[in-house]
């Protein structure tokens, strides 16, 4: 009799456990993944991607500073990304940027207009072309010779390509131009960037010639 009761009790418990206890495989996978995250040790990538703490005077009203710093554990970076990741070049703080008035080089002097020419990009690309390297090198040398000069690099796209992606592509063009100049030794604190996407074309026509002109990085100089 006792054995029968024990068997019954076991069966009942089994049924309850079956309905209450089983975990959906998705949840189990996610738990496992989050456990994995916690176990991973910091890698080399964390050094490069550490957020630069902004100076105290740059407190913008209405925008709270970041609540926490980037977590140390960057385990997801692949060896490829660790190898290829360039050092981050943080953009100059906005409050300081907003106080500057940037003019087109032609408004300041003819020599500057000849020096700070637009550079152009291939469709859907933001790498600096070989033909533009001499122009950028001359600009870089001029900036090194004039350490107080500050420059705004504008990134633009042609009208092809979708709008929002072009906004980011324009940003990439401005940033890669800036990265080239930083590579020459120019301080990143003097180089400001902005992207206008496809919204400020140099040539409003819709043909190859116009599009090639519009895929550009333009320079403006702080007065």
């Amino acid at each position: 009799m006792n054995t029968l009761r024990a068997v019954e009790a076991a069966a009942v418990c089994g049924v309850i456990l079956f309905f209450a206890g089983c975990e959906c495989p998705k949840m189990a996978r996610e738990k496992h993944l989050s456990k994995q995250k916690e176990e991973v040790k910091p890698t080399a990538l964390s050094v490069f991607t550490q957020e630069v703490s902004r100076p105290a005077e740059v407190e913008k009203p209405g925008v709270k500073p970041e609540a926490k710093t980037v977590p140390e554990k960057q385990g997801r970076a692949t060896p490829y990304e660790v190898e290829k990741a360039a050092k981050d070049e943080p953009i100059p703080p906005r409050k300081i940027a907003a106080e500057k008035v940037f003019k087109s080089p032609g408004e300041i002097s003819r020599e500057l207009a000849l020096l700070f020419k637009n550079i152009h990009f291939d469709f859907d690309r933001y790498d600096i072309r070989d033909v533009d390297v001499p122009t950028l090198t001359k600009i870089g040398n001029h900036l090194l010779a004039n350490p107080s000069m500050e420059v705004l690099i504008e990134g633009h796209c042609d009208e092809r390509g979708t709008r929002e992606y072009n906004l980011v592509l324009g940003e990439q063009r401005a940033l890669s131009t800036r990265r080239f100049l930083v590579g020459l030794g120019v301080s990143p604190k003097r180089l400001y960037t902005v992207s206008y996407g496809e919204d400020m074309p140099a040539d409003p026509r819709s043909n190859e010639e116009a599009w090639a002109k519009n895929r550009r990085a333009e320079f403006k100089i702080a007065d």
């Binding site: 913008k60 209405g62 980011v168």
Partner: peptide
């Protein structure tokens, strides 16, 4: 009200 005005791009 400005939500994000970090240096660089704030979009998408």
């Amino acid at each position: 009200k400005t939500v994000l005005a970090e240096p660089g791009l704030n979009a998408c």
